[in-house]
Amino acid sequence: MKIENTFLIKNKLGLHARAATVLAQLAMQFDASIMLHQDDKCAEGDSVLALMLLESSQGKEVRVVCEGPDAQKALDAIGELIADRFHETE
């Protein structure tokens, strides 16, 4: 199963090192291949370095594509994390 959704980066700091780390740690938990796309760049969801390369800042939209047995669970969890500003306060 391959599914995708687009999410808005809401936290002030964007996909900085800590946010990228939290996202990668979450992505590692699922039996799914997870890719994030922004503009013409893409990154593996479980690689902190790749995620930082997206330079996703506040207000950017990222498209998350998940494939595999846990695809739906992974997509939901990642959507929730981004919506929750990576647990950051602003």
Binding site: L13, S47, A50, E55
Partner: peptide, 17 residues
């Protein structure tokens, strides 16, 4: 400097990857 910080991180990540 959030935007500049992200660019610095990206430059480093690009290599270390």
């Amino acid at each position: 400097e959030h935007q500049a910080h992200l660019q610095t991180l990206a430059a480093i990540a690009d290599k270390l990857r």
